[in-house]
Design a protein around this nucleic acid. Structure first.
Lengths: 211, 211
DNA sequence: CAGGCTATGTAACAAAGATCACATACTAAA
DNA sequence: TTTAGTATGTGATCTTTGTTACATAGCCTG
């Protein structure tokens, strides 16, 4: 089961020997949508590789309010966690399953071993860092350069893509948490987007027309 | 010259053999304060290591306006550029000398070679990615969770630290560029900080009392 | 020292977003 | 089918930031 999913997601990037190692030392972890995988302040003793599903990565402010940083999909790993693992520091972020999700958990010591042993692993790690930095830049752009209405539209589009469904199951309050704003503001802007014809609103769900 | 500065800044982290390699294949580059080292869209063919001085890293919006992401100091390297190098993509950011600065430029092919050959180099690269991700998180916190007056105060403190001088040579307009806001707003908030006794204002310079 | 350039101060108004208050609508459970 | 709980809609008001406009101040150069 682990092996099949692992091959589906990673056989393009990892060499045979490494895939075998992962099957041998990694453990499958299944999490339900909404479940917290890693929390802020956690010491991370193993590194997750995403097999199936999606994860959202959140940052918290001093009042405990959240901000969505980005989503991870199949074939991704959380470079933030990677960094924490290798640096043996606490997690700076929270990872929550966006959908039901399958992960392989890799023990840290194996990771370090593979870094010297497998070129494909090193490349994967570098590649992960690179994509995460790029995602972070994107997040900064969105926060710093766009107004809430544009941020909201992007959020809805991202969410629809991640869930492979233009009908999103979400409340205005939940969106407000992810965007670090208030429910009132979200409701108002959603109504505006609906009037502009970009989305359709129902209770507990939103249809994104404009993908 | 290069060798002495290199040893001063890096002998703690790099093994002897690697230091020799860097001296052999790296080239010293000296840049004046204000000079652009890497621009957005540049193809980066060599990787800078900071020997002396300081660099600021900026992001640009679609109108060409800027936003300061963070500063780099001696012993740092720009992980964003690193990512670009290894991924052979264009630079997503601009690097500008904050002070007169000395760099060693490392050719990409050497970097890749060293990644397999030297554990200390790999660790340095990982460590760089880690600190840059952390810096980016910090930047996001500042933009997303704080008002402009707090951002401004932090900016002044950072700048004073980087320049090792509580008297900063800067105009309100320059601050406005770095913080992606307008000169009027900066002047207003600076005046407020002055009244609160946190800073002192003179033409072309600011004294930061509250470090 | 006059004129021009750059930097700073500030008023007035606009826009975005935050906050409070309350009405209405939908849904599930009694 | 009430009713309680959750979700949404919307007005009113305040704060923060952006924008325009103009005054004043410091400094350099002829």
């Amino acid at each position: 089961m682990l092996e099949k999913e692992l091959r589906d997601a990673y056989h393009f990037i990892f060499e045979e020997e490494l895939l075998i190692e992962i099957t041998k030392f990694g453990t499958l972890r299944e999490v339900k949508a909404g479940e917290t995988i890693i929390d802020i302040g956690d010491y991370v003793k193993s590194m997750p590789l995403l097999l199936e599903g999606a994860i959202k990565i959140l940052r918290e402010d001093k009042d405990g309010d959240e901000l969505l940083l980005y989503f991870l999909e199949r074939g991704d790993t959380c470079a933030m966690t990677l960094a924490c693992c290798l640096g043996h520091t606490k997690s700076e972020i929270r990872a929550v399953a966006e959908k039901d999700t399958h992960l392989v958990m890799i023990p840290i010591d194996k990771m370090e071993e593979w870094t010297s042993r497998f070129k494909s692993w090193r490349n994967f790690v570098f590649e992960s860092y690179h994509s995460r930095l790029t995602e972070m830049l994107d997040t900064i752009d969105t926060i710093a350069f766009y107004n809430m209405d544009e941020r909201l539209m992007r959020y809805l589009q991202d969410k629809a893509k991640i869930n492979k469904n233009e009908q999103i199951q979400v409340t205005h309050q939940e969106i407000a948490y992810d965007l670090h704003t208030s429910r009132v503001v979200v409701s108002r802007l959603l109504k505006k987007l609906e009037i502009e014809g970009k989305i359709g609103l129902q209770r507990n769900s939103i249809m994104v027309h404009d993908l």
